[in-house]
Nucleic acid binder design. Structure first.
Lengths: 235, 235
DNA sequence: CCGGTTCTTATAACGCGTTATAAAAAGCGG
DNA sequence: CCGCTTTTTATAACGCGTTATAAGAACCGG
């Protein structure tokens, strides 16, 4: 029975490996189920049997990297939870930056699919990750007591997903992602920070804003009427 | 030459009208190019000639509603820009709520496509809309002077897109969208508000948070370990 | 080793978005 | 009204994700 499960797992691994290779070599468009099956030395039906769908293949790809992400993370529960949040952003975005074109293609492919849980980036486990850190921050007195951590965690995910999508579609310099996500998260945290904690977060906010300004690339040129200085609000 | 252009425009309008009807009747899945052409009494090639692609059809659908949105908006440049921002959120989300299933299907269809400018919800004009209001708010002294309004506007769009995506995929009660978007925007504005303006925004933040709590539906049940109360940060 | 169950394979098929092609139609300048 | 250009039409085709089908292989209990 070992060989049975093993050959199954090996085939599965081979499919995922082939998917990786195909994306790396040919980008998102090169990854078709027929090409994948052929590359993995397997029938067209097999990826469907073993993974379920094309989207599941992509999901499996990302899941493997998520493992890598988790291992690169500082020990959970130790240290300042707020610092932990920003460290997580750094680790994640740095992971994407190491193999830019691959993750761009992967994200683009993922964004195309209409899976419910995945498109929200990345589903409940992610939600819990942020919510857990935020709850800790409430405990340490860095975040106001009445805060709805679930709503806040959702907000972080919106920012994460939005920035990653923007990064995947428009081409921006590496380093931009971290600054942009960090900016959005600092924004949110500023609003719920206790007086004692707001100083460091605000400093982060300003630092991120400056880093964004340095990466002035993707945003379309400001149209003439917008460059005009303030008009008084009265008609 | 009038009849030429007219018949062209009329065909175009008929296609868009057919698209609306098809989505309304059969949802997102029922809108295929073949069905659309047939419904519009037109050849399969014609939508491609007149609109360009399926995505362009969807884009045109949304564009028409965007017009409706703009007209329902308070007069630009008049009144409190911060209030204007929240009013815009109300108007937009209310528009979606009037025909929930239609806009759900429309957004789902839009999210599926991989167009660069559209998936960022909704492109540069939107970006300018928020940026313009924020710039006004800087002028009125409600938003801190050094604020990067472009980055802030982008952040609002991330929230908008994220919430709409969540709304389109998971089913949540009408009214939730406005609260969730309002919450996210208040969060961001709190961080950049001047001392004089922060009071009203914080009040909004709390009000939205309460409204979100009332709509406790879509979020998956909190898993056991997360419900545990605070653990001290030390290992 | 055999019989039955389970999985893989090969292949065809479906509907999809999109493109190409040639014929028909419509518009317009003269 | 004719001829030229532009557009629409009908139809076939391509590759895609996915599913169905029947044949073959692999496994496992007895």
């Amino acid at each position: 029975m070992a060989s049975h499960a093993e050959s199954k797992a090996e085939r599965r691994a081979r499919i995922i490996r082939a998917a990786r290779a195909l994306i790396r070599e040919t980008g998102r468009t090169g990854l078709s189920m027929r090409a994948l099956a052929s590359r993995a030395g397997v029938s067209l039906a097999t990826p469907y049997n073993l993974l379920g769908s094309k989207e599941a293949v992509l999901k499996a790809l990302l899941e493997a990297d998520l493992q890598e992400f988790r291992e690169a993370l500082p020990i959970p529960g130790s240290g300042d939870p707020i610092e932990h949040i920003f460290a997580a952003i750094t680790v994640a975005t740095r992971l994407y930056s190491t193999e830019e074109s691959f993750y761009r293609a992967l994200f683009l492919a993922l964004f195309e699919s209409d899976n419910v849980e995945l498109r929200t980036f990345y589903g409940p486990d992610r939600q819990q990750f942020w919510a857990g850190l935020l709850r800790e921050a409430v405990c340490t007195g860095q975040v106001l007591a009445g805060t709805d951590v679930a709503a806040l965690a959702r907000n972080i995910r919106y920012v994460f997903a939005g920035v990653l999508h923007r990064w995947a579609t428009s081409s921006s310099r590496p380093g931009w992602i971290e600054a942009e996500i960090g900016y959005g998260v600092s924004l949110a945290l500023c609003a719920v920070a206790t007086p004692g904690a707001i100083g460091r977060i605000r400093a982060r906010l300003n630092a991120y804003q400056e880093r964004i300004a340095e990466h002035q690339t993707a945003e379309p040129a400001i149209p003439p009427e917008s460059t005009a200085s303030c008009r008084t609000a009265s008609v």
